[in-house]
Nucleic acid binder design. Structure first.
Lengths: 203, 203
DNA sequence: GTCTATAGCGGGATAGAC
DNA sequence: GTCTATCCCGCTATAGAC
């Protein structure tokens, strides 16, 4: 039996499939999975439902593919972090990348994390579970205590949600990024560091 | 023309209506608004759909009523904060109360904030908009700058989401509360203060 | 790869008896 | 306040022609 690919990045899609995923992601980000029908996806693409079903057998497969694609972006960040020798430095690299991506996608995507259907899927789909475990491990850094777990939870929550908050909707990406980096360091009780780019020479 | 009540707390519901809202809230927290049908609500209550429709004319009315009830809880916190003379002290009181409620409801409810249907409703329903404005004003404290807006966004995001994070699922309420208070003070660059209960004598 | 057409089901909502 | 029965619609999914 051939095992499923270990990396989401290894999954390839045809151009037609990618067009479906692009349209579906946009709609799901706005209406949620349950609030998005295949008719809506087909209309957005200018084709019929049957044409969509040719690319993916079920709606659930579309949602899984979207989740895989989003996770593959984070996967790159996790692997970059794991490549760093020191756990503390690894965490810093990961947080930098998570901030980059949260800003890059700015609200379009953050909502996916909270969709009930996607949450259920993450629990049922083994590759998703394994990746989330891996992400948490990289996020936790060295100390295995209560505080470290709390810090990781608070930081990852705050980053992905704060970028789509109405109160910061008018901030440009650079300002938002600077504030997020500064706040992250403060939350971890690290010295404020304006040059957060030294990816090597970690503490 | 009689204007809508200014306070959500002034809205009264019959016992039958409350039973509907309780059942609906539970289901919506798990499956989202679009993923929850009136049949599911009726089944959870042990009655038929028609019995539910006797209490609320439409599904949307149920969702609105649920949102009103959740906001009325926060309303108490906002009013307690507004009663404090100093803006800085007011913000501290509000944050304390927000932390209390986030822990009290622990994930059951936090998801509602991100439901696409409820987000749309908040934009369309004037009383909801007015309340959110009021909440933000109390949350912003004194300084009107970019930093203050960012801090308010980051804090309110982090508090409501962190409590339902898997990494802290096994923490008891007291530990979680202590960590949240400590982190909030750190995020606002206030001195760490273990006795966070002095509701008067604000800074 | 796209279409038309349709099956089969569950959704929201209403009528009217008890 | 609860029921049974029903209406109409949109949903997921499939069949089969082009």
């Amino acid at each position: 039996m051939t095992t499923a690919p270990q990396r989401f990045s290894a999954i390839t899609r045809t151009a037609a499939q990618t067009r479906v995923l692009d349209a579906a992601l946009k709609l799901i980000a706005e209406h949620g999975v349950s609030g998005t029908s295949l008719q809506m996806i087909a209309d957005a693409m200018g084709v019929t439902k049957a044409a969509v079903y040719r690319q993916f057998k079920t709606k659930e497969e579309i949602v899984i593919a979207i989740t895989e694609r989003e996770m593959s972006r984070l996967e790159d960040a996790v692997e970059a972090a794991e490549a760093v020798g020191h756990p503390v430095g690894a965490r810093e690299v990961l947080l930098d990348r998570m901030i980059d991506q949260a800003i890059e996608r700015r609200g379009e995507v953050s909502v996916l994390q909270f969709d009930p259907v996607i949450i259920r899927l993450q629990g049922e789909h083994e590759p998703f579970q394994r990746f989330i475990e891996r992400l948490y491990a990289a996020l936790l850094g060295t100390e295995p205590g209560v505080e470290a777990r709390f810090h990781a939870a608070m930081l990852s929550s705050a980053i992905s949600v704060a970028v789509m908050h109405p109160l910061v909707a008018d901030l440009d990406a650079e300002t938002l990024r600077a504030q997020l980096i500064q706040m992250s360091r403060r939350m971890l009780d690290l010295p404020a560091d304006s040059s957060a780019k030294r990816r090597s020479a970690a503490v």
